[in-house]
Design a protein around this nucleic acid. Structure first.
Lengths: 190, 190
DNA sequence: TTTATAAATGAATAAAAATTCATTTAATTT
DNA sequence: AAATTAAATGAATTTTTATTCATTTATAAA
């Protein structure tokens, strides 16, 4: 019996992300995905029931992937600023390195392919960050502002950095990264 | 001779924006637009040569529209903080009130419908803000950071506020708006 | 009024995209 | 090495979407 080439799902995801970056979600056709992934169109339907399933599965994979990266090396017991800096850098690096995924998440979020259920899950992504900010407020290091807005502030500014790096292919170096962190830090600090 | 109903273009734009919010750009079909605008499909082609033209025209209209709002009541001669606050509020209000347009711009930006030329134009939108920030730096009120990153910081955090207000239909009141401004202001100030 | 002209219509057509399926290929088991 | 099984293929089919066009409708000018 011929075995499934499990590596194929990764190829399909990669192809889809590449197409989303190049043409947006509206440019993603099953034929184009198959061609990019160098498989036959029919093969797509062995791995995914239909287009909706493909998009929804990739969406969940991207969310999971983000969660993994954001809190890598994060130690909840480290001093507040250390922890905050770690997460800030992790989010930035993830967005920069996996810009296609961020783009896909944004576009898929507003497509008919993703249902409410999945969106609710996606929202839980930043729980550990919210806990850290709560602690920062207790320690009087962070402004007394609702976590909802503090995270919006942090994530929003990071997203825009990565968007601009990618759109205008601006280069980042450690010094510039530091300056950008300082903007965010001065914003949230009490 | 029957005259063109110029109001129809506005109806078409409105319908397109509504559909983009509901289903993303990939859900925008000419039939759906026509139905939503309560005109016949053929009529769409009287006003726009084809789908690409419709999307590109709306994109330009949205950009122009933004430019108008962002610098409304802005006085380049007012004290720095006053001017900055005015623009910050204008951008926020525009994003909140015309969220569908922001969404459309984001999605269209990465679609095959918008060519490089138009994107370059869109980039010039924030020129007056950059001038203001340059002045702020001269007056030692603003951190010595490249305007590119200062605007990214400001615009990114505002965008995320409006995104969250719309996604999670969180309410904003003047007090919360002030808190959010404070985050941004403390971030950029020297 | 009548005529002329362009807008508006929506069914028909063309084009593009999603999905299926009969056939082939490759790996595993007997 | 034959039989078995599921993966892989890609052309054919179905479905959806873009675009056209013959016809109707409304308005301005004659």
């Amino acid at each position: 019996m011929k075995l499934r080439d499990e590596n194929k799902i990764a190829r399909i995801y990669k192809a889809t992300l590449k197409l989303v970056k190049a043409t947006g979600l509206s440019g993603v056709t099953m034929q184009a995905v198959a061609k990019e992934a160098k498989i036959a169109t029919g093969t797509l339907y062995i791995y995914f029931q239909n287009k909706e399933t493909l998009i929804a599965s990739l969406f969940q994979a991207c969310i999971k992937n983000s969660q993994g990266s954001f809190f890598k090396n994060y130690d909840a017991k480290a001093p507040f600023k250390v922890g905050f800096h770690t997460i800030w850098l992790n989010v930035l690096h993830h967005r920069l390195l996996r810009f296609e995924e961020s783009l896909f998440i944004e576009q898929a979020f507003h497509s008919p392919y993703i249902d409410e259920q999945i969106k609710v899950e996606a929202k839980k992504m930043f729980e550990p960050l919210k806990e850290l900010l709560a602690r920062g407020k207790k320690e009087h290091l962070v402004k007394d502002v609702d976590n909802f807005w503090l995270t919006a502030f942090m994530i929003g500014s990071i997203n825009e950095i990565s968007r601009r790096v990618n759109y205008y292919n601006k280069k980042l170096n450690p010094e510039v990264i530091d300056l950008n962190f300082q903007l965010c830090w001065d914003g949230i600090k009490a």
